[in-house]
């Protein structure tokens, strides 16, 4: 399996560390909603097909990547920096998150 790191180019999967389901939404830091925390910490999607995942290029540039991987074929259909275009940064600010 190859992942094409936006910095480093196509690299073998042994250079990467799987960092979990990329669909998880972390509740607001101060949230006391235990169900939401529970879902975030413990629940993972397990789709047969395309899956949003976080991978770290731990043996390379160390960047975390959002990877869409097909769990049946290991085909990687998209790779992007997890930091993205700072949309999530804007979202955090808009929602008044610390």
């Amino acid at each position: 399996m190859l992942i094409t790191c936006p910095y480093c180019g196509p690299r073998d999967v042994i250079e990467f560390t799987y960092q979990g389901d990329g669909n998880r939404e972390r509740p607001q830091p101060a949230s006391q909603n235990l169900d939401a925390w529970n879902a975030y910490v413990y629940n993972r999607l397990n789709p047969a097909g395309d899956h949003n995942e976080i991978w770290q290029h731990s043996g390379g540039c160390r960047a975390h990547l959002r990877v869409v991987r097909n769990t049946l074929t290991h085909e990687v259909s998209s790779v992007a920096f997890a930091r993205g275009d700072h949309k999530s940064a804007a979202r955090h600010k808009a929602e008044g998150k610390p």
Partner: peptide
């Protein structure tokens, strides 16, 4: 190190 990098990259990129 990985823990810190994860939070900076994925959770708190701002």
């Amino acid at each position: 190190m990985q823990h810190l990098e994860y939070f900076l990259d994925v959770i708190w990129p701002e």
